[in-house]
């Protein structure tokens, strides 16, 4: 989804900084953008290297000549078996989905606060709406992310900074490749388009993507716990 966002923003003429670990893929993204109206600057970085973040952030703002739109899309969802309680695996999710989000979003928030403008977008998940059997920690990181972003939203409102939480349903991306069956899937391109539209609008602070997942979420959230645990959702 991150790559799709980069491609679309670039096609619209924006200068975009793309941050992820795999340098080849980033370079390919930047190369694809070559002829286009915008440009893509690539930064290879692992969000676990927290010490690097202030420096990279500073170079990004310098290289782009400012910053007004930021998306945290990095996330991992390793397969977790029904009887698996693997602290290693679980903390890896906490590190990337939550720790990395905080470590990156904090300096951005500070920068937008002082600039009195900007939009922060975080990618949560439908999985954060309920504690499901299948994904204890993945869901917990996404719920925590949503709460963190809500606080930022309330903090930054008086500074005219917008904070948006996107909760994707099921999107066809490498992350979901290992799943057997996707419910109501849409492509990463479609999801990215939706994300940009929602983030630029003023209507939604939190938004399921695509919107029909909002209905699903409302139903799922209304199921009482003693019944929910009998389902296989």
């Amino acid at each position: 989804m991150g790559a799709a966002l980069v491609r679309q923003l670039c096609a619209q003429g924006y200068s975009v900084a793309a941050v992820a670990r795999r340098r080849e893929l980033l370079d390919a993204l930047a190369e694809d953008a070559g002829g286009g109206p915008g440009r893509v600057l690539a930064y290879a970085h692992d969000v676990n290297s927290i010490d690097e973040i202030p420096g990279i952030f500073e170079s990004i703002v310098h290289d782009l000549g400012g910053l007004d739109f930021y998306v945290y899309a990095a996330g991992v969802m390793p397969g977790v078996g029904p009887e698996e309680y693997d602290t290693e695996k679980d903390l890896a999710m906490v590190d990337v989905n939550l720790g990395g989000a905080i470590a990156w979003t904090n300096p951005v928030a500070r920068y937008f606060h002082s600039q009195r403008a900007g939009t922060i977008v975080g990618i949560g998940s439908i999985a954060g709406d309920r504690g499901r059997k299948g994904a204890p920690v993945y869901g917990a990181t996404k719920a925590a992310l949503a709460t963190y972003l809500e606080s930022l939203r309330n903090r930054l409102a008086e500074r005219a900074v917008r904070v948006v939480t996107i909760k994707p349903g099921m999107i066809e991306t490498p992350m979901t490749e290992h799943l057997d069956k996707l419910v109501m899937p849409i492509s990463a391109e479609k999801a990215a388009k939706d994300i940009l539209k929602v983030s630029r609008g003023r209507l939604w602070n939190e938004r399921h993507v695509p919107l029909r997942w909002l209905g699903v979420s409302m139903i799922i959230r209304s199921i009482p716990s003693f019944l929910f645990r009998r389902t296989n959702i």
Binding site: P54, F57, V61, P107, R110, Y111, S114
Partner: peptide, 8 residues
Amino acid sequence: RQAFEYVE
């Protein structure tokens, strides 16, 4: 500690 900010 350091940060990168818009200082006004």
